[in-house]
Design a protein around this nucleic acid. Structure first.
Lengths: 147, 147
DNA sequence: GTTATAATTGATACAGAGTATCATTAAGTT
DNA sequence: AACTTAATGATACTCTGTATCAATTATAAC
């Protein structure tokens, strides 16, 4: 989904500009910080990495990026809300409760199933939120070794 | 699921007692307030209905009731967290974004599907969170009438 | 029924995540 | 370069909880 020739950070800014938002230096700093983040992160973690950017601006930028589909929210099992680069388009997460890694779940049949279930309840489906928790392959193999 | 001969409020207290928690007058007040609540509610709404009970106690009671399976958390589309009487056992909600009504979704095939998807990712499933948003039958019919 | 003891309470303070306000600053436009 | 408007950031505030801890109360033991 990444546009050719654009770094991740540039792509984030690009998306905002397409929506009419200005490219400012605080926003560039936020975009760079997010682009260099490998995993899902909290707003506060991001803010700590950006001491020169105001708190409100960090939160505002996160909100814009979520609204424009570049970021998605990830709800951890303990209720913590994290943010993560979204690979555009609707998807779900397989979250490892051991190491926290998240794998995207694309093209599964959940939407179909929900459509069926909804219509059985005479319910007009408009959206859904799904998070899946468990243990990832690599945590499972470590467990086996140490056991 | 309701035990014979017990009111809803009594059942809530009963569950807590079974787990070794004492039956106290603040907890009775909380149980009564929850039992008389028809819909999902926020912690703060509950607290407002219980001015004589301390804030911390209201939150503590909610936590105990969620842990013991009597209440479940409901995540609204706007991110608001509500509480709702759970009919014991794992289930999901169909939430109407129009009127807020919630219908329980029991015995659907989502678990099976998730098991399949997880094993395809060599992921050991341990739990999941699903909320479904849309418009309920009665909101749809009102729309049709006024349109 | 007292007494002992351990859980519970509630006042208070604190924390985390985010929003509102608003004077100042900086982008983009002409 | 000037202008217009968006964006910023300091600050204060909200909302949903949790931690602390001395005072209270439920339950069990006598």
């Amino acid at each position: 989904m990444r546009r050719r020739g654009l770094s991740l950070a540039e792509q984030l800014l690009d998306t905002l500009e397409e929506k009419g938002y200005r490219s400012t230096s605080p926003r560039r700093a936020v975009a760079n910080a997010i682009a260099s983040q490998e995993r899902h992160f909290t707003a506060e973690e991001l803010r700590e990495r950006l001491p020169e950017v105001g708190r409100a601006t960090v939160y505002r930028s996160l909100k814009l990026l979520v609204e424009s589909g570049e970021l998605c929210r990830v709800l951890l099992e303990d209720g913590d809300l994290h943010y993560q680069l979204s690979h555009r388009g609707h998807h779900h997460h397989l979250l490892c409760v051991e190491c926290g890694v998240s794998e995207d779940l694309l093209g599964c049949d959940i939407e179909d199933l929900l459509r069926q279930v909804s219509s059985a309840h005479e319910f007009q489906l408009s959206g859904h939120w799904l998070e899946v928790y468990g243990r990832c392959r690599s945590c499972l193999s470590i467990e086996t070794v140490t056991a």
